[in-house]
Structure formats: C-alpha cells, structure tokens
Amino acid sequence: MDNKKEILVSAIDNGTVIDHVPTDSLYQVIRILGLERYNDEVLMGNYLASGKLGRKGIVKIRNKHFSVDEVNKIALVAPFASIIDIEDYKVVRKYQAEIPDHIDNCVRCANPKCITNAEVVPTRFDVVDKENLKLRCHYCEKFTTKETMKFTE
C-alpha cells in the first residue's frame, strides 16, 4: 500500500505532505493554501486507494512549511486531513488539521449585501459552530454555513 502511494506520488526531500484529503476537496485545499501561485514543486494525487476514506487525495508541497494557523483553514473542507512536515525525507511533525476559532481571508461571506462582497475588504469570520461548520461574519454579523460556503479566488 505504501509502495503504491510512492509510485503514484513520489516522495519529497523537504516540505509538507497533506494526506487524507477527501477526493472532492482536493482542489479547494489547493486554492485555500494558495498553491496556484506557488513557484516550486507541487505534487498531487487524487482517487488514491485509502483504508480510511476509501479513496483520497494527497498534496505534497516541496520546500514549504506552513504555520498551524495557515494550514488549519483546510479543515473547513478536509476535516480529517493529516499534515506531515518533512525534512531530509524524514517526518519531523505530523498532526491533524483542526478548524480554527477565526478564519480570515479564504472564505467569502454568503450575505450578498455584505460590505465584503461590495468592496475589496478582506473577510473575517468567527467560527461559532465547529461541528456543523457555522461562521459568523465579523462585518455583517450574518452566518455562512457549509452549504453556503464559497472560497475566495
């Protein structure tokens, strides 16, 4: 199983591996982490066999180490993702993404009348319910939920 993974998505010498991403969230994870504009190797695999999820996505980002706050945002779409820091081909840290208490920038407010949708204002949310994923906009005070959640470009 591990061998198969290595064949599909090769190992990196230094950087971050994000494992156990739901297959339908892989591209959102890439967007949330801003990897579309990352100028080094990014390796991706999707629909890989996984004992935990059946099928999963995986991303490996070479020469990039995220802060916990930065990477925790992906828990919005990939609540069971594992974050693995690699240095010199060795795992130096491994942890689960956790939904943070505050989310800045990456989510759009679902309220069309919100100032953040009218002008270039970075969004800010308080997470009021982690289990059901409910965010309260710092500006308009309205809720954005899993069903209405969209991510900024």
Binding site: K113, I115, E119, Y139, C140
Partner: peptide, 10 residues
C-alpha cells in the same frame, strides 16, 4: 448610514 451590511464596522 449605509445600506451595505457590515459597512460601519469596516
């Protein structure tokens, strides 16, 4: 006063 919600906080 502004019709955009959250405009005053901003």
């Amino acid at each position: 006063r502004n019709p955009k919600e959250g405009s005053s906080r901003y």
